[in-house]
Simulated scan of single mutants.
Amino acid sequence: MNIADVVNGLALGIVQGISEWLPISSKTQIMITSIYALHLTFNQAYALGLFLEVGTVLAALIYFRREVWGILKALVLRGSAYDYMMLKYVIIITVLTGLVGVPLYLTVAESVKGIGIGLPMIILGLILIADALLIYISRLRYVPRKRLNELKTWELVLIGAVQGIAALPGVSRSGVTVSTMLLLGLNPEDSFRLSFISMIPAAVGASIVPALFTRHLFHTLISDVNMNVILVSIVVAALVSLVLIDALLRFARSRHIILLTATLGTLAIVSGVLSILTGFG
Rank of each mutant, 00 (worst) to 15 (best):
205 G>A: 02
168 L>K: 04
156 L>M: 15
182 L>Q: 01
152 K>M: 08
197 I>M: 15
206 A>H: 10
191 S>R: 08
175 G>S: 05
165 I>F: 13
216 H>L: 07
156 L>K: 13
196 F>G: 05
144 P>C: 00
146 K>E: 09
199 M>N: 11
179 S>G: 02
187 N>C: 03
148 L>A: 11
165 I>Y: 08
168 L>H: 05
221 L>V: 10
201 P>I: 14
166 A>Q: 01
150 E>R: 14
180 T>M: 05
142 Y>D: 04
150 E>K: 14
222 I>L: 14
150 E>F: 15
202 A>T: 12
152 K>V: 07
196 F>C: 07
215 R>W: 12
144 P>N: 01
146 K>F: 11
145 R>G: 02
216 H>E: 13
226 N>P: 00
160 G>M: 09
166 A>L: 05
171 V>N: 00
142 Y>G: 06
216 H>G: 03
211 A>Y: 14
169 P>V: 05
134 L>T: 14
223 S>H: 11
226 N>M: 04
159 I>E: 05
202 A>H: 05
150 E>C: 08
154 W>R: 10
145 R>Q: 15
133 L>Y: 06
204 V>F: 12
134 L>S: 08
173 R>Y: 10
215 R>M: 10
195 S>M: 03
157 V>C: 10
219 H>I: 14
138 S>M: 06
177 T>C: 00
205 G>F: 07
194 L>R: 01
187 N>E: 15
182 L>P: 03
222 I>T: 14
178 V>Y: 05
180 T>A: 11
135 I>E: 00
136 Y>H: 09
163 Q>K: 09
184 L>D: 09
217 L>W: 11
178 V>R: 01
147 R>F: 08
164 G>W: 12
179 S>T: 08
201 P>N: 05
206 A>P: 04
184 L>W: 13
214 T>G: 02
175 G>Q: 02
216 H>A: 08
167 A>T: 13
157 V>P: 09
206 A>V: 07
148 L>R: 03
174 S>G: 03
183 L>S: 10
212 L>D: 02
179 S>N: 03
147 R>P: 00
209 V>N: 02
136 Y>V: 09
205 G>L: 00
179 S>R: 03
138 S>V: 00
173 R>Q: 01
178 V>F: 07
176 V>S: 01
215 R>F: 13
184 L>K: 09
142 Y>A: 02
153 T>W: 12
177 T>E: 00
197 I>H: 06
222 I>N: 00
195 S>G: 13
198 S>K: 10
167 A>E: 04
